[in-house]
Design a protein around this nucleic acid. Structure first.
Lengths: 205, 205
DNA sequence: ACTACCTTTGACCACCTGGTTAAACCAAAT
DNA sequence: ATTTGGTTTAACCAGGTGGTCAAAGGTAGT
């Protein structure tokens, strides 16, 4: 840590993250962000002009965090099974530390889907390139008889959904925080195993 | 249809569903619900007293719709593979007709997780019984070496997530409405196949 | 001491929000 | 025709909302 002392602007942004992540755009209050940052409400407007602006900053940050790892791992030089394992393990850990993030993102996307593409350019990330990589590996490395796109979506679904649905799982089945932690821990091995087992069924002989 | 003429109360509830599903609790406006129903705002209060009340009515209805099918199918007399197929097919169809529902539910659960259990009782539904059924089938009918709970969550994840993430998928990969419809259609066969392929890997020999 | 510039604050405002109320409406019963 | 009861409306209100603004504070250069 070079500069542990946060600037006011950073403190406001972090406060905004906490508030927006937990309450969403409509539920968040500028006053609450200010309180959370320990500053006057006008100061929030001073640095970010209006609610839309600061929300966008928060959203882009969250989106970048979620997407960056995905891209990095799937573009790397590993074998496909290794990528899946690395990805799931990383995502489950990351998401259970930031449980609000995925739902926050999904909600944001319903409201302003247009901005996604420009956001991808900002992060220097190409969906086509990513899919092309996955396609290559599924078709040429493993020679599987299945649409790579469905595999990709399945990987995301199995990693993300259980985190998003945490309150559902926890209340319905009465899991304690420890138990749900244990459950997520298990998924790091269960999910890659599940996916690789499934892929075996698609092997062309 | 015995009585195609809707009462005012029903029209208000349906308007409220549309508004709440699309905008969530905080984003919804009592005025908008009234407009959508074509009535005066006071009428909404006349029938439902306050915003919390009408939201709860909408939420319970949505939750019941989503849970009912799940329970019905998994308690039925089919074989496990048939259940999976039936469930996925039904869910994908139902959800793509009601794309806002799952995200609406997930958001609601973050805000008021306590009410879930009472809601289960209202619908006469026992999570324990459901899990017990799945446990029996996975362990005794198929004799698989995997925790049934993870399978259950995987089934939900693979059915629900792609619908929730529709805006993400559609914008990132530039799918038209037709293409995404085609994609969901494919999933009705791809997902059961994927799951059953995976389960084969867990067969005890 | 003065200036110049960025930062921070309290007071304020126009507008919107959920909610209330009293009066009007209207169909059925008397 | 009048009463009665549920239904529907317009007008209104208190509190909260995002946002503005002028002034005060603070800091570095002169």
């Amino acid at each position: 840590m070079e500069n542990p002392v946060k600037t006011t602007e950073e403190r406001i942004l972090e406060a905004a993250k906490r508030v927006f992540h937990a309450k969403g755009y409509d539920g968040a209050r500028m006053q609450e962000i200010a309180d959370e940052a320990g500053v006057n409400k006008s100061l929030v407007h001073y640095y970010y002009r209006n609610k839309d602006n600061i929300f966008q900053a928060v959203f882009e940050d969250a989106f970048a965090q979620l997407i960056a790892a995905l891209n990095e791992i799937f573009i790397s030089e590993r074998t496909f099974p290794s990528k899946i394992e690395t990805f799931i393990s990383y995502y489950v850990t990351f998401l259970s530390k930031n449980p609000y993030l995925p739902l926050f993102i999904l909600n944001g996307l319903y409201e302003k889907p247009e901005q996604i593409k420009t956001m991808f350019e900002k992060i220097h990330l190409s969906p086509d390139h990513l899919m092309q990589q996955i396609h290559l590996q599924v078709k040429e490395e493993l020679n599987l008889d299945i649409d790579p796109f469905h595999i990709f979506i399945n990987i995301l679904a199995l990693s993300i959904f259980p985190v998003v649905a945490r309150p559902l799982i926890q209340t319905i089945f009465g899991f304690s925080n420890e138990q749900i932690g244990q459950f997520y821990e298990e998924r790091k091995t269960v999910v890659p195993e599940f996916i690789l087992n499934a892929l075996k069924g698609y092997e062309k002989r």
